[in-house]
Write a protein that binds this DNA or RNA. Structure first.
Lengths: 101, 101
DNA sequence: AATATATTTAGCTAAATATCTAAATGAGTC
DNA sequence: GACTCATTTAGATATTTAGCTAAATATATT
């Protein structure tokens, strides 16, 4: 849990996760989106791996990173729930309409 | 946002927030729940203040800390939402039953 | 086998963090 | 005003972090 929040405490790492939302991406393609050196990004990837927020698949000479959305969800929502957050029934019905008893 | 996640990345600080869920508490009473020195806890409190997760009220010679649940909620759920998390309509209806169109 | 490409590891610096003890500040109390 | 209690600040040290360049590793390609 600490590792997840630590991972999320850096804007670059949060952006990596956002990029991976759209689908798996190689380390190089990810790194190209950032202004820092590739070794620096590699270190960020390592932090995300240690937090188990991504999973890597080897493909030829590339490393393909995948977002582990379920892990993010579990950590974020699990923690939120310990504060009673995130589980209130929020209506998605048109305004004024209700589910009848 | 970074500051919030940084604040949440420490177990002691997360526990401080949990303790404050039950209601406001003084710095000393909070610190008594932990094995580290008071100055160390004071530093943790400062991190929580900088993340705007708590607010402090002076009372006599004590400092009373309050949880800012709304700030925690905004940060946590706001971030979750950028991943499509936390807003899925989770049915609270009896199994098999549905809202008709 | 030599070369090229993709990524990580090594080794470094600078800055931030967590911890401590001792000292300073602030607010009641005698 | 002197004393006590609650908390924070100062100063020291050890660890971690983010960043860099240069080197190493692994896989393809020629």
């Amino acid at each position: 849990m600490s590792r997840v929040f630590k991972a999320l405490s850096d804007p670059s790492r949060r952006r990596v996760l956002q990029l991976l939302r759209a689908g798996p991406m190689s380390a190089g393609d990810l790194a190209d989106q950032f202004a820092v050196s590739k070794p620096t990004m590699s270190a960020h990837f390592a932090v995300l791996r240690e937090a188990d927020l991504v999973h890597v698949e080897k493909s030829g000479k590339s490393m393909i990173y995948h977002l582990k959305l379920s892990v993010l969800e579990e950590a974020l929502m699990g923690f939120a729930q310990t504060f009673g957050l995130g589980t209130e029934a929020v209506s998605t019905l048109p305004d004024g309409q209700e589910v009848l008893p």
